[in-house]
């Protein structure tokens, strides 16, 4: 048992240390402050600021949309709004969506994109694919925390004359806050790190995107591109990018712990 624990912890430490050791040594300030002017892939200067911005431009709106949609769904799944047969049907659909590999969402968005006559890729459809990916993740987290809201609390809100929507908006929302926060951050972390869905939909670019129909670079996709390059010096840049991505994801994980702790202060049990 200790051996298996050691394998699990060891593999995590191995992965983090490989990325940190290789990434920190090849990372430079220049890489973080410049866009990749085409020569980035050829071994000379340039940076990946455009990929960082691109990743944020994809993940932030996607998380925002997914957040609104997920909170609505999770609130609606309460038994005041909907009979339990429908809610279990919706839950099964969401479970299936949770299990669908992200590349399938990528293919879905790509197919729609081709049908609309767009080629190469665009930010908009990247956001679309990521939103689909994040909806089940956030919904599950919010739903779990709404399920444990004590019934007496809701009933006392109703007995004071508040409507279903007001109760959801003011009472249930506050009780479910840790789940909502955790869901948003989980979804964001998953969205910013997911390569498969945006690989197919956003294309690649060396500059900042200027419109929602532009192609853009993103952190996971340029890691993939860099790792596939033959030269060793270029490959090392992949570790620098991965280091930045890992830093973002780790800080999200820490933020999640902090904010869930903070927001669970106001919960009435």
């Amino acid at each position: 048992m200790l051996a298996s624990l050691a394998i699990v912890i060891g593999s995590l430490i191995l992965i983090v240390s490989v990325i940190v050791l290789n990434g920190a040594s090849s990372l430079s300030l220049e890489m973080l402050t410049q866009t990749s002017e085409g020569s980035f892939y050829l071994g000379s200067g340039g940076g990946f600021l455009n990929a960082i911005v691109g990743s944020l431009l994809l993940a932030l709106p996607a998380t925002a949309f997914a957040f609104i949609i997920s909170v609505c769904i999770a609130m609606y799944l309460q038994k005041e709004f909907i009979p339990s047969r429908f809610s279990s049907f919706i839950r099964i659909c969401l479970d299936i969506m949770w299990g669908i590999p992200s590349i399938v969402y990528g293919v879905f968005a790509l197919t729609i994109m081709i049908a609309l006559g767009l080629h190469g890729g665009s930010v908009l459809f990247g956001i679309f694919a990521l939103t689909l990916l994040e909806i089940p993740i956030i919904t599950r987290s919010v739903d779990e925390s709404i399920k444990v809201v004590p019934h007496g609390l809701k009933e006392s809100a109703y007995s004071l004359g508040s409507t279903r929507f007001e109760t959801s908006l003011h009472v249930v929302r506050r009780q479910a806050m840790p789940g909502i926060v955790a869901g948003i951050l989980l979804g964001f972390g998953r969205g910013i790190g997911d390569a498969a869905s945006i690989l197919l939909t956003v294309g690649d670019s060396n500059y900042f995107p200027t419109s929602v129909l532009d192609q853009t670079a993103a952190l996971p996709t340029i890691i993939l591109n860099l790792a596939g390059m033959p030269e060793k010096t270029v490959q090392n840049k992949a570790y620098a990018v991965a280091f930045v991505l890992l830093l973002i994801v780790l800080s999200i994980s820490i933020l999640t712990r902090y904010f869930t702790k903070k927001s669970s202060k106001y919960i009435i049990k």
Binding site: L12, L14, I15, V16, V18, I19, L186, G189, R190, I192, G193, D194, A195, A196, P220, I223, L224, A227, A238, Y239, A242, L245, L246, V249, L250, I252, S253
Partner: peptide, 10 residues
Amino acid sequence: GVPSVVFGLC
């Protein structure tokens, strides 16, 4: 939470 592309790189 580690992205899959990071696993691949390792």
